[in-house]
Structure formats: C-alpha cells, structure tokens
Simulated scan of single mutants.
Amino acid sequence: MRTILTLLTYCTILSTSVLAQKLEVTYQEVVKVNPDEFKSSINFSSNGKSSSIPKDVYDNMIKDMQEPKDFLLTVFDNETTYKKIEKIDNQQHSGGMRISISFGDSGSGLYKNLSSKEYYKSVKLMDKSYTIKDQLKDYKWQLSRETKKILGFDVRKATSIVDSTTTATAWYTPNIPVKDGPGMYDGLPGLILEVEIKNTKNKGIESNIMRAIEVKEMPNLKPLEKPKDKNIISDNEYKTLMEKQMERFKQMRSEGIDKKD
C-alpha cells in the first residue's frame, strides 16, 4: 500500500511539473582535469625565464579546479536567472595562488527572456562593470532516441557542435516544458537537467559537466529582475574589449622584461 501511495505521489509531482512555470533548479558543476596535460600547458615566467610551480601550489590549483560548484536556475514563466551559489571557504591555500575555472558562464548574474530570445549578463573587466545584452545562441541541437533518468525524470539526449572546438551533450526532460538549462545552454523541448561540454582549446581540461541535483516548484516565487541597463555592450563588443586587454597585458609584460634586461 505504501509503495502504491509513493508511486501516486510521484506521478502527481510529474503531472504538476508539466504545468509548472515557477521553479528553482540547483545544478552542480564539475570540471574533469588531466593533471599532467594541464601542467604541461601552463607557462609561468619571470624576467623572461621559465619557472616551475611548487608541487604544493600546483596540487592546490588542481584541487580547486575540480571542487564542485553549485548554481541556481530560477524560472518564472518565460524568464529565468542563473547565478552561482557562493560558499564560505575556510581552507588555506599555499602560495596564495588559487585558480577557479567554470563553464557555467553566469558572470555575476545571467538573465534570459525565452520569449524575446534576449539575455543580459553582468560581467567585470578590469574593475569596470558591464552588462552584456544580446540574442540567445541557436545551438541547432541534434535530438537522439537515447534516454536515461536524472532525479527520477525521464531525460533524452541531444548534441550540438557549438563551434570548431566545442561540443555539448545535453539531457533534457519533456516533463518540464521549460526551454532552458544551466548557463547559456537552452533551446530544447524541455528543461536541460545535464550538459557536458568538451573544448579542445582548454588543454588538460577533459570536460565540464553541469548536472541538476534538485528541482523544486516555487508557487510563491516573485517576478524576476533583469540586470540594470548600465554600460550596455554586445557580446562581440565584450570579446573585443577582452582581446584589447590581453594585448595590453602582453605589451606591459614585454616592456617590463626589456627594462630589466
């Protein structure tokens, strides 16, 4: 009898989820690192000479990179936000060096309007805040018949070639008719509960996986707020600013070395 009641309760949750458009979904992001390959891709130098990384510092770098990170996707009808869940870190790190790599692509906050296909993303560059305002990417997903279960939901597989170096494998559930998912990934006929990203440019980074660990209905959820229209730029303009900043760093580094020589 208890088994039948449990099954009926679960079926009720699934049926109401079909209609639910007010949700909170917690994702956990895990980066898979090949330590040896990653170490060989790092090039540290001082005064023009290569220098090795102390083992304890390198070990902490790898540990920090592989530490799971949590993100929260909030859904209110056709609007969503995606933000990192900050955690208190009381650990000591040797050498004062810490690297945190994330493909969640949320910046300080990501807002999407799934109806207008627009997104706003808060970012920082050289201590200056910007708001990227642009159109959502069309991932041209290839749907598959392959299925599995995540958090009790039946999910289906879809793949996308994002660009010449990046591929994404997503698992989505038609039981939750929200065409969104973690980070910038969206556009499938159901909520994306897991996405694995592989990028051949990131040497030593085998893959990045964002997987849902909790789905909650939020009937009393308040309307979402998009980032403020301050220092609005497009995604291409932001990339141009990033490239210019990298060139400045290289120039400053080169000039510093020449002066010391």
Rank of each mutant, 00 (worst) to 15 (best):
T6L: 15
T9W: 10
T12C: 11
I13E: 03
L19H: 10
Q21A: 10
K22L: 09
L23H: 01
V25Q: 02
E29G: 04
S40A: 13
F44Q: 08
N47P: 01
S51Q: 14
S51C: 11
D56C: 06
K63T: 11
M65I: 15
P68I: 06
K69M: 07
L73T: 03
V75D: 00
D77K: 15
I88N: 11
D89V: 11
G96Q: 05
S102H: 09
F103L: 13
G104H: 03
G104S: 08
S115M: 11
Y120D: 04
L125K: 07
M126R: 14
K128M: 06
I132R: 03
D138W: 08
D138H: 09
Y139Q: 05
Y139T: 10
W141H: 08
R145M: 10
E146P: 04
E146T: 14
T159S: 09
V162I: 13
T165M: 08
T167F: 01
P174Y: 05
P174G: 00
V178H: 01
K179V: 13
D180T: 12
P182F: 04
G183M: 03
D186R: 14
G187M: 03
G187I: 04
G187K: 07
L188N: 01
E194D: 03
I205S: 02
E206V: 15
S207T: 07
I213W: 03
K216F: 04
M218T: 14
K222S: 09
I232N: 02
I232P: 01
L241Q: 08
K244H: 05
F249T: 12
K250M: 11
I257V: 15
K259T: 11
D261S: 12
